[in-house]
């Protein structure tokens, strides 16, 4: 019963805060409206310069093809390789193609590895197509069938991941500041001399963040439908279930950090450290299977990894309970144990 009163208090405090309600509304909007455009790993408009020493029909045809290609922005010809390299150094070109005695040299600026390799790969492809034109095809024709995401829409891939980021930031950082805040204010002492149970106290701190998570994710779903026309392929129920489980983990985790911290600054730095690690190792941006095995092992205890995996399955591949049961179980276990820890780490009697 006391839970009801404690909950009311938490909600009132959040509502009265000058900054939090605005943050809760504005943050998902900004993230959903901006980041899908930004999180675009597609490599476009690679600037290429050519050094044509041959001046043959073949080399002319290649340059023509380059101009026509929509991958490349053809920045003209240079007399020597040195001149072309200077262009790269001045950031006027990304790739150089040199044609000499019928041989091709592709030199790509690969400070950004993806860009470099994609650029040189595309370029090689164009050259290869040219060369094989007229000859018998080397390989048998290979057909590629893409399952899901038929339009190769990168936004569809990233939007469910954004749900994870929004939920993580909203339900992780705010509770991390909560108990430390009461400690710094001195009100926690008053709570500690009341007969309020540790469970009720911690639950009252957790539940508002779960509701915030639900609110935020509803906003995200509406925005992704309204702005991008993207809706989950699977059942929306599973999206909510997953979000609640993730919120359970992060809110408990935030409170744990808050319980052990002495100042708000400490809490936020520690939280930030874990958030960055969890996020980078979750497969949100990069495939987990490409990681070395020691790093891959950490994904077994990383709730973000399970969440990202599962929500992409639901959202993009249209999976249901059967497909994500393992992830649901893992998230539940991690979330519950964090909850228990959060209660255990709150000490009323030192």
């Amino acid at each position: 019963m006391t839970l009801k009163f404690l909950l009311q208090k938490e909600f009132l405090q959040i509502r009265r805060n000058a900054f939090l309600p605005r943050l809760i509304v504005a943050f998902p909007i900004v993230i959903m409206c901006v980041t899908p455009w930004v999180m675009n790993m597609e490599v476009k408009q690679i600037r290429v310069v050519a050094v044509d020493c041959d001046h043959t029909v073949r080399s002319q045809r290649l340059l023509h093809d380059l101009e026509a290609s929509h991958y490349f922005t053809f920045n003209g010809q240079r007399a020597t390789y040195q001149e072309a390299l200077a262009d790269v150094e001045h950031s006027k070109a990304d790739v150089i193609v040199e044609i000499r005695n019928g041989k091709y040299l592709i030199a790509a600026n690969s400070v950004n590895g993806t860009k470099g390799s994609m650029g040189s790969a595309y370029l090689s492809q164009i050259i290869a197509q040219q060369d094989v034109a007229g000859q018998a095809p080397t390989g048998q024709g290979m057909a590629v069938k893409l399952l899901y995401n038929p339009h190769q829409n990168y936004q569809l891939y990233m939007i469910p991941a954004l749900f994870a980021i929004v939920v993580m930031l909203m339900t992780g950082f705010l509770p991390a500041l909560n108990i430390v805040g009461e400690k710094e204010q001195g009100t926690i002492e008053q709570m500690n001399v009341t007969p309020v149970s540790r469970w009720a106290f911690i639950l009252a701190k957790l539940i508002p963040y779960w509701l915030i998570a639900l609110f935020v994710v509803t906003m995200c779903l509406l925005l992704s439908w309204g702005v991008y026309g993207i809706t989950p392929a699977g059942s929306v129920v599973w999206v909510y279930v997953l979000v609640i489980l993730l919120a359970m983990f992060f809110s408990s985790f935030g409170l744990i950090i808050s319980n052990y911290s002495e100042t708000m600054q400490q809490a936020i730095f520690v939280m930030w450290f874990f958030v960055v690690c969890l996020m980078l190792l979750s497969g949100l941006f990069t495939p987990t299977r490409s990681m070395p095995s020691w790093a891959y092992l950490t994904t077994y205890v990383n709730p973000m990894h399970y969440f990202i995996d599962a929500i992409r399955t639901v959202f993009i591949r249209g999976g249901g309970f059967h497909e994500i049961s393992l992830q649901l179980l893992a998230l539940l276990c991690i979330g519950l144990s964090m909850g228990v820890w959060a209660v255990a780490s709150y000490k009323k009697n030192a």
């Binding site: 790269v88 041989k103 091709y104 030199a107 790509a108 690969s110 590895g113 470099g116 290869a128 060369d131």
Partner: peptide, 25 residues
């Protein structure tokens, strides 16, 4: 990998980051 094309006339050179390490970026 399937086609295993014989080494063609194309020579690729990665400037600045020959091993394509993402750390460089």
């Amino acid at each position: 990998v399937i086609a295993n094309p014989p080494s063609g006339p194309v020579n690729v050179k990665m400037l600045y980051n020959p091993q394509m390490k993402s750390a460089y970026n």
